[in-house]
Design a protein around this nucleic acid. Structure first.
Lengths: 294, 294
DNA sequence: GCAATAGTGTCTTTTAGACATTATGTG
DNA sequence: CACATAATGTCTAAAAGACACTATTGC
Protein backbone atom coordinates (compact mmCIF):
# COMPACT_ATOMS: atom_id res chain seq x y z
CA UNK A 1 0.00 0.00 0.00
CA UNK A 2 1.26 3.41 -0.87
CA UNK A 3 -0.43 5.27 1.98
CA UNK A 4 1.82 7.69 3.78
CA UNK A 5 1.37 9.07 7.29
CA UNK A 6 1.74 12.61 8.56
CA UNK A 7 5.53 12.30 8.34
CA UNK A 8 5.32 11.19 4.74
CA UNK A 9 6.36 7.64 5.52
CA UNK A 10 4.92 4.51 3.94
CA UNK A 11 4.09 1.62 6.23
CA UNK A 12 7.31 -0.15 5.32
CA UNK A 13 9.39 2.93 5.94
CA UNK A 14 7.59 3.49 9.22
CA UNK A 15 8.28 -0.02 10.45
CA UNK A 16 11.92 0.18 9.43
CA UNK A 17 12.49 3.31 11.47
CA UNK A 18 10.24 2.19 14.36
CA UNK A 19 11.99 1.76 17.68
CA UNK A 20 10.10 0.49 20.65
CA UNK A 21 9.76 3.27 23.18
CA UNK A 22 11.58 3.34 26.45
CA UNK A 23 8.46 3.18 28.56
CA UNK A 24 8.40 0.46 31.11
CA UNK A 25 7.15 -2.97 30.12
CA UNK A 26 5.88 -5.70 32.40
CA UNK A 27 7.17 -9.22 32.52
CA UNK A 28 4.56 -11.65 31.32
CA UNK A 29 4.33 -15.08 32.87
CA UNK A 30 2.01 -18.03 32.61
CA UNK A 31 0.70 -19.91 35.60
CA UNK A 32 -0.78 -23.33 35.11
CA UNK A 33 -3.56 -24.87 37.13
CA UNK A 34 -3.11 -28.54 36.29
CA UNK A 35 -5.95 -30.74 37.46
CA UNK A 36 -6.22 -34.47 37.56
CA UNK A 37 -8.43 -36.98 39.30
CA UNK A 38 -6.80 -39.77 41.24
CA UNK A 39 -8.13 -42.76 43.12
CA UNK A 40 -7.76 -43.41 46.79
CA UNK A 41 -6.87 -46.91 47.81
CA UNK A 42 -10.03 -48.94 48.34
CA UNK A 43 -10.93 -49.95 51.88
CA UNK A 44 -12.22 -53.35 50.86
CA UNK A 45 -11.52 -55.48 47.84
CA UNK A 46 -15.03 -55.07 46.52
CA UNK A 47 -15.72 -51.46 47.42
CA UNK A 48 -15.06 -48.89 44.74
CA UNK A 49 -12.15 -46.54 45.35
CA UNK A 50 -12.94 -42.92 46.15
CA UNK A 51 -11.87 -40.28 43.68
CA UNK A 52 -10.08 -37.04 44.44
CA UNK A 53 -9.51 -33.86 42.48
CA UNK A 54 -5.88 -32.88 42.61
CA UNK A 55 -3.81 -29.91 41.54
CA UNK A 56 -0.07 -29.80 40.91
CA UNK A 57 1.99 -27.42 43.04
CA UNK A 58 5.70 -26.77 43.28
CA UNK A 59 7.55 -25.79 46.40
CA UNK A 60 9.46 -22.61 45.88
CA UNK A 61 13.20 -23.02 46.27
CA UNK A 62 14.05 -19.31 46.29
CA UNK A 63 12.70 -15.93 47.27
CA UNK A 64 10.13 -14.61 47.19
CA UNK A 65 7.78 -16.97 49.01
CA UNK A 66 10.65 -19.33 49.76
CA UNK A 67 9.25 -22.65 50.93
CA UNK A 68 5.67 -21.82 49.93
CA UNK A 69 3.80 -23.74 47.28
CA UNK A 70 3.18 -22.21 43.88
CA UNK A 71 1.56 -23.09 40.60
CA UNK A 72 3.94 -24.26 37.92
CA UNK A 73 4.68 -21.53 35.45
CA UNK A 74 7.31 -19.29 34.02
CA UNK A 75 8.00 -16.31 31.90
CA UNK A 76 6.87 -16.04 28.32
CA UNK A 77 9.84 -15.84 26.00
CA UNK A 78 10.16 -13.76 22.88
CA UNK A 79 8.80 -15.51 19.80
CA UNK A 80 6.42 -17.67 21.72
CA UNK A 81 2.76 -17.19 22.53
CA UNK A 82 1.43 -17.45 26.06
CA UNK A 83 -0.13 -20.73 25.03
CA UNK A 84 3.19 -22.07 23.76
CA UNK A 85 4.77 -21.02 27.03
CA UNK A 86 2.05 -22.91 28.87
CA UNK A 87 2.57 -26.02 26.76
CA UNK A 88 6.30 -25.80 27.36
CA UNK A 89 5.84 -25.47 31.13
CA UNK A 90 3.38 -28.30 31.17
CA UNK A 91 5.76 -30.56 29.34
CA UNK A 92 8.62 -29.59 31.62
CA UNK A 93 6.64 -30.15 34.80
CA UNK A 94 4.64 -33.23 33.97
CA UNK A 95 6.16 -34.71 30.83
CA UNK A 96 2.76 -34.90 29.18
CA UNK A 97 2.20 -33.46 25.76
CA UNK A 98 -1.36 -33.84 24.59
CA UNK A 99 -3.73 -32.39 27.11
CA UNK A 100 -6.70 -30.17 27.29
CA UNK A 101 -5.52 -26.63 27.76
CA UNK A 102 -7.63 -23.55 28.24
CA UNK A 103 -6.73 -19.97 28.92
CA UNK A 104 -8.30 -18.85 32.18
CA UNK A 105 -7.70 -15.24 33.05
CA UNK A 106 -4.95 -12.67 33.05
CA UNK A 107 -4.03 -11.39 36.49
CA UNK A 108 -2.33 -8.05 36.72
CA UNK A 109 -2.83 -6.69 40.24
CA UNK A 110 -0.20 -4.21 41.29
CA UNK A 111 2.33 -5.82 43.57
CA UNK A 112 1.15 -9.38 42.92
CA UNK A 113 4.83 -10.23 42.49
CA UNK A 114 7.05 -8.40 44.99
CA UNK A 115 10.07 -8.53 42.67
CA UNK A 116 8.87 -6.57 39.72
CA UNK A 117 5.91 -5.84 37.49
CA UNK A 118 4.59 -9.24 36.44
CA UNK A 119 1.36 -9.92 34.61
CA UNK A 120 0.29 -13.54 34.61
CA UNK A 121 -1.76 -15.19 31.93
CA UNK A 122 -3.18 -18.28 33.62
CA UNK A 123 -4.11 -21.56 32.00
CA UNK A 124 -6.01 -24.60 33.14
CA UNK A 125 -4.88 -28.05 32.03
CA UNK A 126 -6.73 -31.30 32.51
CA UNK A 127 -4.81 -34.53 32.65
CA UNK A 128 -6.25 -37.99 32.90
CA UNK A 129 -4.91 -40.58 35.25
CA UNK A 130 -3.59 -42.68 32.33
CA UNK A 131 -1.14 -40.02 31.33
CA UNK A 132 -0.29 -39.25 34.88
CA UNK A 133 1.38 -42.63 35.15
CA UNK A 134 3.70 -41.68 32.31
CA UNK A 135 5.05 -38.90 34.43
CA UNK A 136 7.75 -40.54 36.50
CA UNK A 137 10.97 -39.00 37.76
CA UNK A 138 10.28 -35.36 37.19
CA UNK A 139 13.13 -32.99 37.66
CA UNK A 140 11.12 -30.20 39.23
CA UNK A 141 12.70 -30.29 42.64
CA UNK A 142 9.66 -30.46 44.80
CA UNK A 143 6.44 -30.97 42.91
CA UNK A 144 3.40 -32.62 44.45
CA UNK A 145 -0.26 -33.24 43.77
CA UNK A 146 -2.57 -31.68 46.34
CA UNK A 147 -6.11 -32.79 46.97
CA UNK A 148 -8.50 -29.93 46.35
CA UNK A 149 -11.47 -28.85 48.41
CA UNK A 150 -13.30 -25.64 47.57
CA UNK A 151 -16.41 -24.87 49.55
CA UNK A 152 -18.62 -21.86 50.17
CA UNK A 153 -18.15 -20.43 53.63
CA UNK A 154 -20.55 -17.53 53.91
CA UNK A 155 -22.47 -15.21 51.71
CA UNK A 156 -23.74 -11.72 52.29
CA UNK A 157 -25.86 -9.39 50.27
CA UNK A 158 -26.53 -5.73 50.83
CA UNK A 159 -29.19 -3.96 48.84
CA UNK A 160 -29.09 -0.23 48.37
CA UNK A 161 -31.23 2.14 46.32
CA UNK A 162 -29.93 1.32 42.91
CA UNK A 163 -27.97 -1.87 43.29
CA UNK A 164 -26.39 -4.35 45.63
CA UNK A 165 -23.08 -5.62 46.88
CA UNK A 166 -22.77 -9.34 47.29
CA UNK A 167 -19.82 -11.03 48.88
CA UNK A 168 -19.22 -14.74 48.83
CA UNK A 169 -16.40 -16.36 50.70
CA UNK A 170 -14.96 -19.71 49.75
CA UNK A 171 -12.56 -21.86 51.64
CA UNK A 172 -9.84 -23.45 49.56
CA UNK A 173 -8.08 -26.37 51.16
CA UNK A 174 -5.20 -28.21 49.60
CA UNK A 175 -3.96 -31.40 51.21
CA UNK A 176 -0.75 -33.11 50.27
CA UNK A 177 2.70 -32.97 51.73
CA UNK A 178 1.36 -30.11 53.78
CA UNK A 179 -2.04 -28.67 54.55
CA UNK A 180 -2.54 -25.40 52.71
CA UNK A 181 -5.60 -23.25 53.02
CA UNK A 182 -6.93 -19.92 51.92
CA UNK A 183 -10.14 -17.97 51.99
CA UNK A 184 -11.08 -16.21 48.78
CA UNK A 185 -13.75 -13.55 48.67
CA UNK A 186 -15.73 -12.78 45.57
CA UNK A 187 -17.43 -9.41 45.57
CA UNK A 188 -20.11 -8.61 43.03
CA UNK A 189 -21.01 -4.95 42.81
CA UNK A 190 -24.15 -4.18 40.85
CA UNK A 191 -25.61 -0.84 39.97
CA UNK A 192 -28.67 -0.33 37.86
CA UNK A 193 -26.95 -1.03 34.62
CA UNK A 194 -23.42 -2.15 35.35
CA UNK A 195 -21.96 -5.06 37.27
CA UNK A 196 -18.44 -5.90 38.27
CA UNK A 197 -16.85 -8.83 40.05
CA UNK A 198 -13.71 -8.79 42.07
CA UNK A 199 -11.69 -11.56 43.69
CA UNK A 200 -9.69 -11.02 46.84
CA UNK A 201 -7.59 -13.24 49.06
CA UNK A 202 -8.76 -12.91 52.66
CA UNK A 203 -6.43 -15.36 54.33
CA UNK A 204 -3.68 -17.44 52.87
CA UNK A 205 -1.64 -20.13 54.52
CA UNK A 206 1.11 -21.74 52.48
CA UNK A 207 0.42 -20.59 48.93
CA UNK A 208 2.74 -18.23 47.05
CA UNK A 209 1.78 -15.03 45.24
CA UNK A 210 -1.92 -14.69 44.38
CA UNK A 211 -2.12 -18.32 43.45
CA UNK A 212 -5.02 -19.04 45.81
CA UNK A 213 -7.07 -16.69 43.65
CA UNK A 214 -5.98 -18.36 40.43
CA UNK A 215 -6.81 -21.81 41.75
CA UNK A 216 -10.21 -20.60 42.97
CA UNK A 217 -10.87 -19.08 39.58
CA UNK A 218 -9.89 -22.33 37.86
CA UNK A 219 -12.17 -24.43 40.02
CA UNK A 220 -15.08 -22.15 39.31
CA UNK A 221 -14.41 -22.33 35.60
CA UNK A 222 -14.11 -26.10 35.72
CA UNK A 223 -17.35 -26.45 37.66
CA UNK A 224 -19.15 -24.11 35.35
CA UNK A 225 -18.07 -25.91 32.23
CA UNK A 226 -18.83 -29.33 33.60
CA UNK A 227 -22.53 -28.78 33.10
CA UNK A 228 -22.61 -27.66 29.53
CA UNK A 229 -19.54 -29.12 27.85
CA UNK A 230 -17.76 -32.45 27.68
CA UNK A 231 -14.79 -31.03 29.53
CA UNK A 232 -14.93 -33.72 32.20
CA UNK A 233 -13.97 -36.33 29.63
CA UNK A 234 -10.51 -34.83 29.52
CA UNK A 235 -10.05 -36.03 33.07
CA UNK A 236 -10.91 -39.60 32.05
CA UNK A 237 -8.69 -42.32 30.62
CA UNK A 238 -9.46 -43.69 27.18
CA UNK A 239 -11.90 -46.26 28.56
CA UNK A 240 -13.98 -45.70 31.64
CA UNK A 241 -17.22 -46.76 33.25
CA UNK A 242 -20.15 -44.43 33.68
CA UNK A 243 -19.81 -44.79 37.43
CA UNK A 244 -16.24 -43.55 37.20
CA UNK A 245 -17.38 -40.61 35.11
CA UNK A 246 -20.07 -39.86 37.63
CA UNK A 247 -17.51 -39.94 40.42
CA UNK A 248 -15.43 -37.38 38.55
CA UNK A 249 -18.43 -35.11 38.23
CA UNK A 250 -19.19 -35.56 41.90
CA UNK A 251 -15.70 -34.86 43.10
CA UNK A 252 -15.39 -31.75 40.95
CA UNK A 253 -18.82 -30.40 41.85
CA UNK A 254 -18.50 -31.53 45.46
CA UNK A 255 -22.06 -32.82 45.24
CA UNK A 256 -23.75 -36.18 44.93
CA UNK A 257 -25.69 -36.92 41.79
CA UNK A 258 -28.48 -39.35 41.02
CA UNK A 259 -27.38 -42.22 38.86
CA UNK A 260 -30.29 -42.44 36.44
CA UNK A 261 -30.39 -38.72 35.74
CA UNK A 262 -26.63 -38.57 35.35
CA UNK A 263 -26.62 -41.32 32.77
CA UNK A 264 -29.27 -39.61 30.73
CA UNK A 265 -27.32 -36.36 30.81
CA UNK A 266 -23.99 -37.75 29.65
CA UNK A 267 -25.49 -40.23 27.20
CA UNK A 268 -24.59 -38.09 24.19
CA UNK A 269 -21.07 -37.38 25.37
CA UNK A 270 -19.94 -40.99 25.41
CA UNK A 271 -19.92 -44.03 23.13
CA UNK A 272 -20.34 -47.51 24.53
CA UNK A 273 -17.79 -50.19 23.79
CA UNK A 274 -17.99 -53.97 24.06
CA UNK A 275 -15.50 -53.98 26.89
CA UNK A 276 -16.32 -54.61 30.51
CA UNK A 277 -14.52 -54.35 33.82
CA UNK A 278 -13.39 -57.64 35.32
CA UNK A 279 -12.72 -59.14 38.72
CA UNK A 280 -14.48 -56.37 40.51
CA UNK A 281 -16.20 -58.47 43.15
CA UNK A 282 -19.57 -57.56 41.68
CA UNK A 283 -21.36 -57.21 38.39
CA UNK A 284 -19.01 -56.05 35.62
CA UNK A 285 -19.47 -52.58 34.25
CA UNK A 286 -19.51 -51.59 30.63
CA UNK A 287 -16.64 -49.41 29.46
CA UNK A 288 -17.30 -46.26 27.48
CA UNK A 289 -15.16 -43.84 25.59
CA UNK A 290 -15.55 -40.23 24.60
CA UNK A 291 -18.00 -39.65 21.79
CA UNK A 292 -16.20 -37.84 19.01
CA UNK A 293 -19.13 -37.92 16.62
CA UNK A 294 -21.04 -35.00 17.94
CA UNK B 1 9.98 -14.62 58.15
CA UNK B 2 13.56 -15.47 58.88
CA UNK B 3 13.92 -18.00 56.06
CA UNK B 4 17.08 -17.60 54.05
CA UNK B 5 17.72 -18.84 50.54
CA UNK B 6 20.75 -20.60 49.14
CA UNK B 7 22.67 -17.32 49.11
CA UNK B 8 21.88 -16.73 52.76
CA UNK B 9 19.50 -13.88 52.03
CA UNK B 10 16.21 -13.23 53.79
CA UNK B 11 13.24 -12.34 51.66
CA UNK B 12 13.65 -8.65 52.43
CA UNK B 13 17.34 -8.73 51.58
CA UNK B 14 16.58 -10.63 48.40
CA UNK B 15 14.00 -8.10 47.26
CA UNK B 16 16.29 -5.20 48.03
CA UNK B 17 19.06 -6.57 45.85
CA UNK B 18 16.70 -7.86 43.15
CA UNK B 19 17.11 -6.28 39.74
CA UNK B 20 14.78 -7.20 36.96
CA UNK B 21 16.71 -9.15 34.38
CA UNK B 22 17.62 -7.83 31.00
CA UNK B 23 15.61 -10.36 29.11
CA UNK B 24 13.15 -8.96 26.65
CA UNK B 25 9.68 -8.00 27.84
CA UNK B 26 6.57 -7.56 25.75
CA UNK B 27 4.41 -4.50 25.66
CA UNK B 28 1.00 -5.23 27.11
CA UNK B 29 -2.02 -3.49 25.69
CA UNK B 30 -5.74 -3.69 26.20
CA UNK B 31 -8.22 -3.80 23.36
CA UNK B 32 -11.84 -3.02 24.05
CA UNK B 33 -14.81 -4.50 22.28
CA UNK B 34 -17.50 -2.02 23.20
CA UNK B 35 -21.00 -3.11 22.28
CA UNK B 36 -24.21 -1.21 22.32
CA UNK B 37 -27.64 -1.65 20.79
CA UNK B 38 -29.13 1.21 18.84
CA UNK B 39 -32.44 1.79 17.13
CA UNK B 40 -32.97 2.34 13.46
CA UNK B 41 -35.40 5.04 12.49
CA UNK B 42 -38.87 3.58 12.19
CA UNK B 43 -40.40 3.33 8.72
CA UNK B 44 -43.87 4.17 9.91
CA UNK B 45 -45.12 6.04 12.94
CA UNK B 46 -46.65 2.95 14.47
CA UNK B 47 -44.10 0.33 13.55
CA UNK B 48 -41.48 -0.46 16.16
CA UNK B 49 -37.93 0.59 15.31
CA UNK B 50 -35.49 -2.17 14.43
CA UNK B 51 -32.58 -2.72 16.76
CA UNK B 52 -28.95 -3.15 15.79
CA UNK B 53 -25.90 -4.43 17.60
CA UNK B 54 -23.05 -2.01 17.21
CA UNK B 55 -19.37 -1.97 18.04
CA UNK B 56 -17.10 1.05 18.43
CA UNK B 57 -14.11 1.31 16.08
CA UNK B 58 -11.49 3.97 15.59
CA UNK B 59 -9.85 4.80 12.33
CA UNK B 60 -6.11 4.58 12.62
CA UNK B 61 -4.36 7.86 12.00
CA UNK B 62 -0.84 6.44 11.80
CA UNK B 63 1.11 3.37 10.79
CA UNK B 64 0.74 0.51 10.98
CA UNK B 65 -2.67 -0.13 9.42
CA UNK B 66 -3.01 3.54 8.57
CA UNK B 67 -6.60 4.25 7.60
CA UNK B 68 -7.89 0.88 8.79
CA UNK B 69 -10.37 0.54 11.62
CA UNK B 70 -9.25 -0.73 15.01
CA UNK B 71 -10.66 -1.45 18.42
CA UNK B 72 -10.09 1.28 20.97
CA UNK B 73 -7.27 0.41 23.29
CA UNK B 74 -3.85 1.32 24.47
CA UNK B 75 -0.87 0.25 26.46
CA UNK B 76 -1.08 -0.72 30.09
CA UNK B 77 0.93 1.68 32.22
CA UNK B 78 3.01 0.87 35.25
CA UNK B 79 1.01 0.87 38.46
CA UNK B 80 -2.26 0.09 36.78
CA UNK B 81 -3.99 -3.22 36.16
CA UNK B 82 -5.19 -4.28 32.75
CA UNK B 83 -8.70 -3.63 33.98
CA UNK B 84 -7.82 -0.12 35.09
CA UNK B 85 -6.27 0.47 31.68
CA UNK B 86 -9.49 -0.74 30.08
CA UNK B 87 -11.62 1.55 32.26
CA UNK B 88 -9.35 4.44 31.39
CA UNK B 89 -9.57 3.76 27.66
CA UNK B 90 -13.31 3.38 27.87
CA UNK B 91 -13.68 6.67 29.62
CA UNK B 92 -11.41 8.37 27.12
CA UNK B 93 -13.19 6.98 24.09
CA UNK B 94 -16.80 7.13 25.16
CA UNK B 95 -16.94 9.33 28.23
CA UNK B 96 -18.94 6.72 30.10
CA UNK B 97 -17.85 5.55 33.50
CA UNK B 98 -20.12 2.89 34.91
CA UNK B 99 -20.42 0.04 32.50
CA UNK B 100 -20.31 -3.68 32.45
CA UNK B 101 -16.77 -4.77 31.79
CA UNK B 102 -15.47 -8.28 31.36
CA UNK B 103 -12.07 -9.63 30.50
CA UNK B 104 -12.25 -11.66 27.32
CA UNK B 105 -9.01 -13.25 26.31
CA UNK B 106 -5.33 -12.48 26.03
CA UNK B 107 -4.00 -12.56 22.50
CA UNK B 108 -0.30 -13.10 22.05
CA UNK B 109 0.30 -14.40 18.53
CA UNK B 110 3.76 -13.70 17.21
CA UNK B 111 3.72 -10.78 14.83
CA UNK B 112 0.19 -9.69 15.68
CA UNK B 113 1.61 -6.17 15.90
CA UNK B 114 4.21 -5.49 13.20
CA UNK B 115 5.97 -2.87 15.31
CA UNK B 116 7.08 -4.86 18.27
CA UNK B 117 6.14 -7.62 20.67
CA UNK B 118 2.68 -6.74 21.92
CA UNK B 119 0.40 -8.93 23.97
CA UNK B 120 -3.17 -7.75 24.15
CA UNK B 121 -5.53 -8.39 27.02
CA UNK B 122 -8.96 -7.84 25.54
CA UNK B 123 -12.09 -6.67 27.32
CA UNK B 124 -15.73 -6.52 26.40
CA UNK B 125 -17.83 -3.58 27.54
CA UNK B 126 -21.58 -3.26 27.28
CA UNK B 127 -23.15 0.18 27.13
CA UNK B 128 -26.82 0.98 27.08
CA UNK B 129 -28.32 3.46 24.71
CA UNK B 130 -29.10 5.88 27.59
CA UNK B 131 -25.46 6.38 28.34
CA UNK B 132 -24.56 6.50 24.71
CA UNK B 133 -26.40 9.79 24.41
CA UNK B 134 -24.12 11.26 27.04
CA UNK B 135 -21.21 10.71 24.74
CA UNK B 136 -21.21 13.79 22.57
CA UNK B 137 -18.22 15.52 21.04
CA UNK B 138 -15.60 12.88 21.59
CA UNK B 139 -12.06 13.87 20.91
CA UNK B 140 -10.99 10.58 19.43
CA UNK B 141 -10.35 11.77 15.91
CA UNK B 142 -12.37 9.28 13.96
CA UNK B 143 -14.50 6.99 16.05
CA UNK B 144 -17.67 5.38 14.75
CA UNK B 145 -20.21 2.76 15.69
CA UNK B 146 -20.42 -0.11 13.23
CA UNK B 147 -23.39 -2.41 12.88
CA UNK B 148 -22.37 -5.99 13.56
CA UNK B 149 -23.31 -9.11 11.67
CA UNK B 150 -21.66 -12.41 12.52
CA UNK B 151 -22.95 -15.47 10.73
CA UNK B 152 -21.78 -19.02 10.16
CA UNK B 153 -20.56 -19.56 6.62
CA UNK B 154 -19.57 -23.19 6.41
CA UNK B 155 -18.64 -26.02 8.64
CA UNK B 156 -16.54 -29.06 8.01
CA UNK B 157 -15.73 -32.06 10.11
CA UNK B 158 -13.16 -34.72 9.45
CA UNK B 159 -13.12 -37.83 11.55
CA UNK B 160 -9.99 -39.90 11.89
CA UNK B 161 -9.12 -42.94 13.99
CA UNK B 162 -8.83 -41.28 17.34
CA UNK B 163 -10.34 -37.86 16.93
CA UNK B 164 -11.60 -35.22 14.57
CA UNK B 165 -10.82 -31.84 13.14
CA UNK B 166 -13.72 -29.47 12.87
CA UNK B 167 -13.51 -26.14 11.13
CA UNK B 168 -16.22 -23.53 11.28
CA UNK B 169 -16.05 -20.36 9.29
CA UNK B 170 -17.90 -17.23 10.26
CA UNK B 171 -18.42 -14.09 8.30
CA UNK B 172 -18.04 -10.89 10.24
CA UNK B 173 -19.53 -7.84 8.61
CA UNK B 174 -19.29 -4.36 10.04
CA UNK B 175 -21.29 -1.60 8.46
CA UNK B 176 -20.83 2.04 9.24
CA UNK B 177 -18.84 4.74 7.56
CA UNK B 178 -17.39 1.93 5.51
CA UNK B 179 -18.19 -1.70 4.91
CA UNK B 180 -15.67 -3.89 6.67
CA UNK B 181 -15.68 -7.65 6.49
CA UNK B 182 -13.62 -10.61 7.58
CA UNK B 183 -13.86 -14.36 7.66
CA UNK B 184 -12.76 -16.00 10.86
CA UNK B 185 -12.10 -19.72 11.04
CA UNK B 186 -12.40 -21.68 14.25
CA UNK B 187 -10.60 -25.00 14.23
CA UNK B 188 -11.31 -27.57 16.91
CA UNK B 189 -8.82 -30.39 17.05
CA UNK B 190 -9.86 -33.33 19.18
CA UNK B 191 -7.91 -36.42 20.05
CA UNK B 192 -9.12 -39.15 22.34
CA UNK B 193 -8.47 -37.21 25.48
CA UNK B 194 -7.41 -33.72 24.53
CA UNK B 195 -9.09 -30.92 22.64
CA UNK B 196 -7.84 -27.60 21.44
CA UNK B 197 -9.44 -24.66 19.68
CA UNK B 198 -7.74 -22.18 17.45
CA UNK B 199 -8.98 -18.99 15.81
CA UNK B 200 -7.59 -17.77 12.53
CA UNK B 201 -8.36 -14.85 10.25
CA UNK B 202 -8.97 -16.13 6.73
CA UNK B 203 -9.76 -12.88 4.99
CA UNK B 204 -9.82 -9.38 6.34
CA UNK B 205 -10.95 -6.23 4.65
CA UNK B 206 -10.58 -3.00 6.55
CA UNK B 207 -9.80 -4.08 10.10
CA UNK B 208 -6.43 -3.48 11.74
CA UNK B 209 -4.24 -6.03 13.51
CA UNK B 210 -6.00 -9.23 14.60
CA UNK B 211 -9.05 -7.28 15.66
CA UNK B 212 -11.42 -9.33 13.53
CA UNK B 213 -10.54 -12.27 15.73
CA UNK B 214 -11.07 -10.32 18.92
CA UNK B 215 -14.46 -9.09 17.78
CA UNK B 216 -15.47 -12.61 16.76
CA UNK B 217 -14.39 -13.88 20.12
CA UNK B 218 -16.38 -11.17 21.88
CA UNK B 219 -19.55 -11.92 19.94
CA UNK B 220 -19.29 -15.58 20.77
CA UNK B 221 -18.81 -14.79 24.44
CA UNK B 222 -21.73 -12.40 24.43
CA UNK B 223 -24.00 -14.91 22.72
CA UNK B 224 -22.96 -17.66 25.06
CA UNK B 225 -23.61 -15.62 28.16
CA UNK B 226 -26.94 -14.32 26.97
CA UNK B 227 -28.56 -17.65 27.70
CA UNK B 228 -27.47 -18.23 31.22
CA UNK B 229 -26.80 -14.80 32.73
CA UNK B 230 -28.51 -11.43 32.88
CA UNK B 231 -25.75 -9.88 30.78
CA UNK B 232 -28.23 -8.56 28.22
CA UNK B 233 -29.65 -6.18 30.79
CA UNK B 234 -26.43 -4.21 30.63
CA UNK B 235 -27.39 -3.28 27.10
CA UNK B 236 -30.72 -1.88 28.29
CA UNK B 237 -31.57 1.54 29.64
CA UNK B 238 -32.93 1.84 33.16
CA UNK B 239 -36.51 1.28 32.02
CA UNK B 240 -37.44 -0.87 29.07
CA UNK B 241 -40.27 -2.97 27.72
CA UNK B 242 -40.06 -6.72 27.42
CA UNK B 243 -40.38 -6.40 23.69
CA UNK B 244 -37.31 -4.19 23.63
CA UNK B 245 -35.45 -6.71 25.72
CA UNK B 246 -36.52 -9.45 23.35
CA UNK B 247 -35.31 -7.42 20.39
CA UNK B 248 -31.92 -7.12 22.04
CA UNK B 249 -31.75 -10.87 22.50
CA UNK B 250 -32.78 -11.36 18.91
CA UNK B 251 -30.29 -8.95 17.45
CA UNK B 252 -27.43 -10.41 19.47
CA UNK B 253 -28.34 -14.02 18.77
CA UNK B 254 -29.33 -13.25 15.18
CA UNK B 255 -32.38 -15.42 15.68
CA UNK B 256 -36.09 -14.87 16.23
CA UNK B 257 -37.60 -15.89 19.52
CA UNK B 258 -41.13 -16.76 20.56
CA UNK B 259 -42.73 -14.13 22.71
CA UNK B 260 -44.41 -16.25 25.35
CA UNK B 261 -41.39 -18.45 25.93
CA UNK B 262 -39.08 -15.46 26.06
CA UNK B 263 -41.16 -13.75 28.70
CA UNK B 264 -41.13 -16.81 30.88
CA UNK B 265 -37.38 -17.09 30.57
CA UNK B 266 -36.53 -13.53 31.53
CA UNK B 267 -39.26 -13.23 34.16
CA UNK B 268 -36.80 -13.60 37.03
CA UNK B 269 -34.28 -11.18 35.57
CA UNK B 270 -36.60 -8.17 35.56
CA UNK B 271 -38.92 -6.32 37.90
CA UNK B 272 -42.10 -4.72 36.65
CA UNK B 273 -42.78 -1.05 37.28
CA UNK B 274 -46.02 0.94 37.12
CA UNK B 275 -44.77 2.86 34.11
CA UNK B 276 -46.00 2.40 30.57
CA UNK B 277 -44.95 3.56 27.14
CA UNK B 278 -47.08 6.32 25.63
CA UNK B 279 -48.13 7.60 22.23
CA UNK B 280 -46.97 4.49 20.51
CA UNK B 281 -49.81 4.15 18.05
CA UNK B 282 -50.88 0.92 19.70
CA UNK B 283 -51.46 -0.60 23.11
CA UNK B 284 -49.03 0.80 25.70
CA UNK B 285 -46.36 -1.49 27.01
CA UNK B 286 -45.35 -1.93 30.60
CA UNK B 287 -41.84 -0.80 31.52
CA UNK B 288 -39.53 -3.07 33.46
CA UNK B 289 -36.18 -2.65 35.12
CA UNK B 290 -33.40 -5.00 36.03
CA UNK B 291 -34.15 -7.22 39.00
CA UNK B 292 -31.46 -6.69 41.60
CA UNK B 293 -33.05 -8.94 44.20
CA UNK B 294 -31.83 -12.21 42.91
C1' DG C 1 -62.83 0.28 12.89
C1' DC C 2 -58.12 -0.83 11.73
C1' DA C 3 -53.24 -1.33 12.24
C1' DA C 4 -49.92 -2.74 15.22
C1' DT C 5 -48.27 -4.26 19.21
C1' DA C 6 -49.14 -6.05 24.33
C1' DG C 7 -49.99 -9.66 27.02
C1' DT C 8 -51.93 -14.26 28.41
C1' DG C 9 -53.73 -19.14 28.06
C1' DT C 10 -53.03 -23.70 27.02
C1' DC C 11 -51.55 -27.71 24.73
C1' DT C 12 -47.59 -30.64 23.74
C1' DT C 13 -42.87 -32.08 24.10
C1' DT C 14 -38.57 -32.37 26.57
C1' DT C 15 -35.90 -32.48 30.39
C1' DA C 16 -34.88 -33.16 35.25
C1' DG C 17 -35.62 -35.20 39.84
C1' DA C 18 -36.66 -39.03 42.75
C1' DC C 19 -36.79 -43.55 43.77
C1' DA C 20 -37.63 -48.41 43.04
C1' DT C 21 -36.64 -52.61 40.74
C1' DT C 22 -34.06 -56.00 38.34
C1' DA C 23 -29.44 -57.89 36.85
C1' DT C 24 -24.94 -60.08 37.52
C1' DG C 25 -19.95 -61.52 38.53
C1' DT C 26 -17.10 -62.84 42.65
C1' DG C 27 -15.81 -64.90 46.96
C1' DC D 1 -26.17 -67.21 48.23
C1' DA D 2 -24.80 -62.73 49.82
C1' DC D 3 -22.39 -58.54 48.70
C1' DA D 4 -21.72 -54.69 46.15
C1' DT D 5 -22.33 -52.50 42.24
C1' DA D 6 -24.62 -52.23 37.26
C1' DA D 7 -28.30 -50.90 34.68
C1' DT D 8 -32.94 -49.66 33.65
C1' DG D 9 -38.00 -48.52 34.39
C1' DT D 10 -41.40 -45.37 35.81
C1' DC D 11 -43.75 -41.82 38.10
C1' DT D 12 -43.81 -36.88 38.81
C1' DA D 13 -42.54 -32.14 38.39
C1' DA D 14 -40.58 -28.50 35.97
C1' DA D 15 -39.04 -26.25 31.79
C1' DA D 16 -39.25 -25.29 26.84
C1' DG D 17 -41.55 -24.97 22.36
C1' DA D 18 -45.45 -23.77 19.60
C1' DC D 19 -49.37 -21.38 18.60
C1' DA D 20 -53.71 -19.16 19.30
C1' DC D 21 -56.41 -15.98 21.50
C1' DT D 22 -57.71 -11.59 23.88
C1' DA D 23 -56.53 -6.64 25.09
C1' DT D 24 -55.39 -1.67 24.13
C1' DT D 25 -54.09 2.33 22.21
C1' DG D 26 -53.73 6.19 18.31
C1' DC D 27 -55.30 7.76 14.34
Amino acid sequence: MGLVDKDGLTEREFLEQYRAGDYERPSVATDMVIFTVTEEEADSYRKLPEKELRVLLIRRGGHPFLGKWALPGGFVRPNETTEQAAVRELSEETGVEDVYLEQLYTFSDIGRDPRTWVISCSYMALINSDKLELRSGDDAADAAWFKVSYRPLREQKELNEDGFIKTQEYELQLSGEEELSAIVKRTTTAKTTSTGTDYEIVTNDGLAFDHAKIIAYAIERLRGKLNYTDIALHLMPKFFTLTELQQVYEVVMDKELLKAAFRRKVADLVTETDLYTENAGHRPSRLYRRNLEE
